[in-house]
C-alpha cells in the first residue's frame, strides 16, 4: 500500500485554442519523493500544475490523486446537471496542494488567517464527512443524498459559529494552534498578525507554502517557490523543503528556474519544452541529455531555467 503512487499522471494534454501547451505528460509521485519539473519559460510547467489541480481540465489523459481519477470528460460544460471534472477544492481535499508562481495570497487577510482558511476544521455536526463523501462518490441518487446531507451539515455548522458553542470554540483554538505551528515551521511567527500584502516578497512565498501545508496535503506542488530570492535565501529554502518532506511525510513536485538548485535536491527530474517531455531521469542523466542541452542552449545564456 505504501508504495502506491499518491499522484499518477497519464498522458495528459492541454490545448489552448490552437496551442498545445502540454502534450502526453506523464508522471508519478509517491510518498517521500522529491521530484523536479524544469524547462524554459513557456514550456508548460505551470500549465501542468493547473491540469493536476483542476484549474484547467485536461483535454486528454488521466490524472489520479490518491486512487481517484479527478478528470472525466473535459467536453462537459459547467451546467448544474453536467458537472464533468472534479473541482479544484475537491482535488485539494484528496490530498493535493499547490502554491502559485505569481503569488496569490489573500492579501487583505493576516498571515495567520491565510493559513487558517486552508485548515479545514470540519467536525460534522450530524453526518460524518467521510460518510457523505462516500455517498457522493457512489454516484446516482446516493450522490444527490450525500450532497443534501452535506448541505445540511454545512448550514448546521454555521449555527455553531453563531452561537459560539463550546465545541466550536475548542475547534477554533485547535485550528489557530495548528496555523501557529505551520507559521513557526516556515519561520513566519513574527508576522502572524500582519496583512499578507505587507510581507516582504520572500516571506510571501513562504506563506504560500504554509498555507498549502494547512490543507494537510499528501502531495505538495511548488511552482517556483524560490523565484525572486537571493542565492542564500534559495539555499535555505531548499533545505527547508527537504525538511518539510520528511516532517510531514509528503511527496513533493517542484518547479524551479535555477537549474543548479533543482539538480542539487531532486532525485528525479522531468524536462519540458514546448509542452513536450524531452527527458526524464536522475539529475546526472538529464544533464547529459543532448536534447536538454539543446533546449537550454537555444535560449539566451543565463536565462536557462
Amino acid at each position: 500500500m505504501s508504495d502506491a503512487p499518491l499522484l499518477e499522471v497519464k498522458n495528459v494534454s492541454i490545448r489552448f485554442g490552437g496551442l498545445k501547451a502540454l502534450s502526453n505528460f506523464s508522471l508519478e509521485v509517491r510518498k517521500g519523493d522529491l521530484k523536479g519539473l524544469i524547462g524554459p519559460n513557456g514550456a508548460g510547467k505551470t500549465t501542468a500544475f493547473n491540469a493536476l489541480t483542476g484549474v484547467y481540465p485536461p483535454t486528454e489523459g488521466a490524472v489520479v490523486v490518491g486512487g481517484v481519477q479527478i478528470n472525466r470528460k473535459a467536453s462537459e460544460g459547467q451546467g448544474l446537471f453536467s458537472r464533468g471534472a472534479m473541482r479544484p477544492f475537491e482535488i485539494n481535499r484528496l490530498g493535493l496542494a499547490r502554491t502559485f508562481q505569481n503569488i496569490r495570497l489573500f492579501k487583505q487577510l493576516s498571515a495567520l488567517d491565510n493559513v487558517r482558511v486552508a485548515i479545514i476544521a470540519r467536525t460534522a455536526p450530524l453526518f460524518s464527512a467521510e460518510r457523505t463523501y462516500r455517498m457522493k462518490v457512489a454516484g446516482g441518487f446516493s450522490k444527490f443524498a450525500g450532497r443534501t446531507l452535506e448541505t445540511i451539515n454545512n448550514y448546521l455548522d454555521w449555527w455553531r459559529a453563531f452561537f459560539r458553542t463550546p465545541g466550536f470554540l475548542r475547534e477554533e483554538a485547535e485550528v489557530t494552534a495548528r496555523a501557529d505551528e505551520l507559521l513557526q515551521v516556515m519561520g513566519l511567527s513574527h508576522r502572524r498578525d500582519e496583512l499578507a500584502r505587507n510581507l516582504p516578497y520572500g516571506e510571501q512565498r513562504r506563506l504560500e507554502i504554509a498555507r498549502a501545508l494547512g490543507t494537510g496535503p499528501k502531495v505538495l506542488l511548488l511552482d517556483e517557490p524560490a523565484a525572486g530570492m537571493n542565492t542564500r535565501e534559495k539555499g535555505d529554502l531548499m533545505v527547508l523543503i527537504r525538511e518539510l518532506k520528511d516532517r510531514f511525510g509528503l511527496g513533493i513536485l517542484l518547479i524551479e528556474h535555477d537549474m543548479k538548485l533543482v539538480m542539487g535536491i531532486c532525485e528525479q527530474i522531468t524536462v519540458l519544452d514546448h509542452g513536450e517531455t524531452i527527458a526524464t531521469g536522475t539529475p546526472a542523466e538529464v544533464r547529459a541529455d543532448p536534447k536538454v542541452i539543446e533546449a537550454y542552449l537555444g535560449e539566451a545564456p543565463g536565462a536557462a531555467a
Binding site: R87, F89, N92, R104, F106, Q108, V117, W158, R164
Partner: peptide, 30 residues
C-alpha cells in the same frame, strides 16, 4: 460572529482570490 468564524474567513478568501481559495479546499460555490 460570521466574520470571526472559519466561514467568514472563507468568504473573505473568496473575495480576495477565488482561484486560490478553491485551490486551498474552499468549496467556493457552496
Amino acid at each position: 460572529r460570521l466574520a470571526a468564524s472559519p466561514h467568514g474567513r472563507s468568504l473573505w478568501a473568496i473575495r480576495e482570490d477565488e482561484v486560490a481559495a478553491e485551490a486551498m479546499g474552499v468549496d467556493t460555490t457552496s
